[in-house]
Structure formats: C-alpha cells, structure tokens
Nucleic acid binder design. Structure first.
Lengths: 219, 219
DNA sequence: CAAATTTGTTAGAATAGTCTAACTTTGTAA
DNA sequence: TTACAAAGTTAGACTATTCTAACAAATTTG
C-alpha cells in the first residue's frame, strides 16, 4: 500500500499527465514543491513498486496500476470536497486543504457512506469529475468562457483552476456553478468580456478569468 | 506542532495515566506496540519538546501542555466517533479505526462543524466524555453493573472497554446505551448476573461483562 | 555547431521513527 | 542481602523522505 507521500506523487503525476500521459521530473518536483533529487529518488522507488515507468533522462508515465491508484485518491479527494460543501456546509473555497488530508484516510466504508449520502455525485464542488469506484473518469467536455461569442447564453459548469483566491473572486461576483450568463460583448484589445447574469446587469471579466471558467453553451 | 506519531504517544500517556498521572515506559511501549528502546527515545524527544517530564529510570508525567494537547486529540477522536454514528450511520463497533486516523487531521473548522452538527455532545457513542475545546474533561461517575444489587433498576450509561468484540457482543444481546435493566439476581459462585430488559426477560451476563458496563442507578 | 541553459543524476548528509543486541539499574524474594 | 527478574538504557543499524553540492546529459540558440 502506498504511503501518503507516495500517494501525493501518484496524484501529481496523474494530474500533470500531458498529451502522451508523459511528465517531466521537473514538473513533478515543482508541483510537489520538492527538490529535483528528491523527486528523482522517489520516482525510482515508485518504479520499483510498479507504479511508474521510468528510464534515465526519459519522461515519466504511470502504469495502469499507478493510474488507478491515483484516480482512487482523487476520487476520495473530490468526494470529500463534495461532502464538506453539501453535508457540512463549507464554502467551495474552504475545502481543498481539508480534503488534501482526508484523501489519505484508509477507510472504504467512510467514503462509500459519503458517496451514498451525496447521492453518488459525478462532479465535485468545482465541477471536476469524480472518478468512479473502479478509477474510471469521464472527462469534461465544456468550453472556456473565453471561446464563447457575444449574444450567446451559457451556464457556468466547471473551473480549470480552483485556487482559494480565484474562488473568492467568484464569490465576490456572486458567480457559482449553474449561473447562467449572457455574453454582452468581448473587448478585442484585452479579450475581456462583458456579461450579465442574475442581479448583475453588466460585469466585466478579464481574459484570465474567462479562460478559467468552463461553460455549457445553452443556445 | 506534534506529528501523528507524537500525538499517539501523548494520547497513550494520557489514557494510561494512573493515580499520580504517572506511567511506566513499558506500559507506554506495550500500549503503542513499539519496543522499549523506541519508546525510550521518543520519550526523550517529547521531553525536549516540553510535553513530558522524564528522568532516567523514573516514571513519566505529561506536562500541562502535554495534557492539553492529548485531551484535544481525544476530543477530535470522540467527536469523530459521534459524527460517524449520528451523521453517517456507522455502528458503534465500526468507528474506532476510522477515528484513529481522522483524529490527526489538522482542520479546526472541520471539527467545529461536527460539534455544531451534533449539538455539542458531551459523550461519545460509548459513553466516554468528550473533552471541551480547552481540553477540560469531566470524568464520569457511573457504577459498574457488577456493583449493582438484585432488585435495582439501572440504565446503561457507558463502557470501560470499547473493543469491537465487546461491542459486537452487546449488539448480539441488543444492549445499547440507555437500555434500562432490572437486576434479577447475582450468582455468588461466579459473580454473573441475571438481568431483564426490553424483550429480554432473562439474560445472564458474566462477571467480565458486568465489570465493563457502567450504569446509572435509577432507584 | 559550439556555447549556454535547462534538466536530470549522483553522492553524501540529515531527521524521524523504528528495530535488535547487549548492558545497567531497580525492585523482589529467597 | 545477595541473586534473579523486570524495567530501562545505550549503541548501532535500517527505512523513508528530504536536502545541498557537484556533475552530466540533453536541449536550445546565437
């Protein structure tokens, strides 16, 4: 069984996986905030345990086992976030830290109960998909708000970034998942967009924000 | 801040504390299932951190700080057990293992929310008192069933032992906290007792069981 | 393409927590 | 009160995870 540290490496590897599912050591080290040699030696040991495929100077890939293990940790993380928000009344900006700890708890029944109490949710409070109990994950197919056209009606469905600061920014604008927006205009100079939604007849969102908001196009 | 390992040492020390609040190294080592040298070296480091008072060949005592830290971990443990039973519908025999892990989570708000959702309980599912947020604990003042006299009416209030096996035994007899018992007789040969309670007109409980059941005398 | 930069590797060390083996103190009991 | 047993200590070693310093390979770029 993986230690918490190992679980964190697998999770990072899973989340960083690029087009080919390949990740550089440096990316991994940066994402975990450890030095390159630390990541290097850990990766060697993950390889010995059969979780990653690794050859000197080559990029890293998770094995099938590694992917599944990672997905199941992410499942626990997202289920926990959902539980904190729906059952324990946390704000969506408060749940990450706690979930980072609870995801390492070994107690299948605890997470099964959460799942059941939540009615088997498929996405977490930030719209990210929750892997199923087998570690299968259905990728999202939403569009960045930045790609929407003036006149379109869209609904906020997920975020590509869930940092506390961004979530607090969204709170301050009363933007939450499900909010329906009408795109009023797009400024070609800086790609910012002017949108309207309930009680907010005109709100300007920067390019950065528009890229982080994933929407479902309604018309 | 204490590591999980250190927290476990403090908790054991707190729970083992005898009359003088003194504990032997061997008791500690046995309770944590580590070797004597391991306990010895850990105790030295706990002393350096100001959590225990220790001198070569002398018994151990927790400092004020150590006691408070321990009580707050026990608070998290018991609050968690209560949450698992009352909110997540676990059986009282299933909660210990999970709580052993969750008690090490650092997330004040998480436990405050539990406390609030539970209506600020003062005892856990096994009748053990929950330390307050300052680490103060009110000791129980119940009587072992073994001390009750034939003819008395008592109510099951707490347990001195909460092992899974004992809890499953109680489940099998439909005995739970709050159950009112009438003591029918006590066998002087083996100290076993014959009691009656809802739907159980006559149930024999061994001395061992009677010593582990703490009751409130009703008349 | 050769230099510069980025990326990855090795070596060596530190800390936390654990162990076994060997030895010393303390406490008990004949 | 000496001898044995129980309890505690020391020394030395091991694993996991981390670091810095020094070096090597790969990649980028003028």
């Amino acid at each position: 069984m993986a230690s918490s540290t190992e679980e964190n490496y697998l999770k990072s590897l899973y989340n960083l996986a690029n087009v080919q599912g390949e990740v550089n050591l440096s990316e991994l080290a940066a994402s975990l905030q450890v030095s390159l040699p630390t990541a290097n030696s850990m990766v060697k040991s993950l390889q010995k345990s059969g979780w990653v495929i690794y050859e000197k100077y080559k990029p890293l890939t998770l094995t099938k086992e590694g992917k599944k293990t990672a997905a199941l940790i992410i499942r626990k993380h997202r289920l926990t976030e959902m539980f904190l928000v729906k059952v324990m009344n946390f704000g969506w900006e408060e749940v990450h830290e706690v979930a980072e700890q609870i995801e390492h708890i070994h107690a299948p029944k605890f997470f099964e109960r959460m799942d059941q109490m939540l009615g088997f949710p498929t996405v977490d409070p930030h719209g990210s998909p929750i892997p199923d109990p087998q570690g299968k994950i259905t990728p999202l197919s939403y569009t960045p708000l930045a790609h929407a056209k003036p006149g379109q009606h869209v609904q906020l469905a997920a975020l590509t970034n869930s940092s506390t600061e961004f979530l607090e920014f969204l709170n301050s604008r009363k933007l939450s998942l499900g909010t329906q927006l009408t795109i009023l205009s797009k400024e070609s100079y800086d790609q910012s967009m002017v949108v309207s939604y309930a009680h907010h007849p005109s709100e300007t969102l920067s390019e950065k924000v528009c890229e982080r908001l994933l929407v479902r196009v309604l018309d």
